[in-house]
Amino acid sequence: MKLRMKSLAVVMGLLVLPGCQNMEAVSPWIDVGNQVVKNAGYDTDSKLARGIKETLYTSTDRASTGLSQVGAFNLSLPSAARPVADGLRQFGLGSYVDQLQDAMNRGAEQAVAEAAPVFKQAITGMTVNDALGIVRGSDTAATDYFRRQTEAALRLRYQPIVEENLRKTGFYEQYKGLLAAYEKLPVAGKPELDLERYVIDQSMAKLFTRIGEEETLIRKDPVARGSLLIGQVFGGAEG
């Protein structure tokens, strides 16, 4: 029994070589370690998968909670619309610009708050092979996987929330009419003026950037920022 536990400890040490900074070199040891521990009656793949899922739960929760707070976003009108905004301010109509930008930011915050169920579903559906690929990947491998799995669903959830907030400005229909006319203009390379798409793109970019930052921090200090299980996967903690 002591020999078996000692072998397990050695193999787990190989599985969690610190830093994840050179995963190409570490990868063969992961494969060897997995097989040895399986032969001893332990299912390391499942443990790795649980650690990855816990990393995702932790990083997405921190990111979405932080970005759903009022003031988390500071979106302004897209650059193509700024000359119009400047003109309105010159004529004393700056309050309309401020109202529109406030609606954009509230929409982004509320949309991020709705992301949790989509994240949970993606994490639940993650396979062991997905998790093993993430362990061997870059410092944001989990985030990159996550974005591929959730982006389409998030856009569907974001759209009505952003639209609802823009409608509160009172001139949403006029904006949509102008946008429709603008998009029909036979001009190549027209700048982006679709505010809904702009807000969704900006808020999703910031959300996944924040998730990636959280993942990187967890990988660097897995026990302090995650748990003992995450530490065993990424940082060499004993458990």
Results as ranks from 00 to 15, higher is better:
K184I: 11
L193C: 15
L132W: 13
E196S: 13
P191F: 14
V199R: 08
I134D: 15
A180S: 13
D201Y: 12
R155W: 08
P191Q: 11
L193E: 09
I161R: 03
G212F: 01
L166R: 05
D221M: 10
Q159E: 07
I134M: 13
K168E: 13
L132C: 12
K168W: 08
E164Y: 07
E173W: 03
E151A: 08
A224M: 09
A205H: 00
Y145E: 01
L207G: 02
Y172C: 00
P222H: 02
Y198P: 07
D194T: 08
I200K: 06
E183I: 12
R210M: 12
I200M: 10
V187E: 11
F146A: 09
D139V: 14
K190P: 03
L166Y: 04
L179M: 11
S203M: 03
Y198N: 03
G226N: 13
I218A: 02
E213C: 09
D139K: 12
K206C: 04
E215Q: 11
A188G: 08
I211C: 03
E192M: 12
I134F: 08
K220S: 13
R225M: 10
T143P: 12
G137A: 02
N129W: 14
R136V: 13
A131Q: 01
I211E: 05
E151Y: 09
R147V: 12
A131S: 08
Y172H: 02
G137L: 00
D130M: 15
L178P: 02
P186D: 04
K176V: 15
L156I: 12
E163P: 06
A205G: 01
R219M: 05
R167V: 06
A153I: 03
A152I: 09
R167P: 01
E213K: 02
P186I: 01
S138D: 15
T140K: 05
K220A: 12
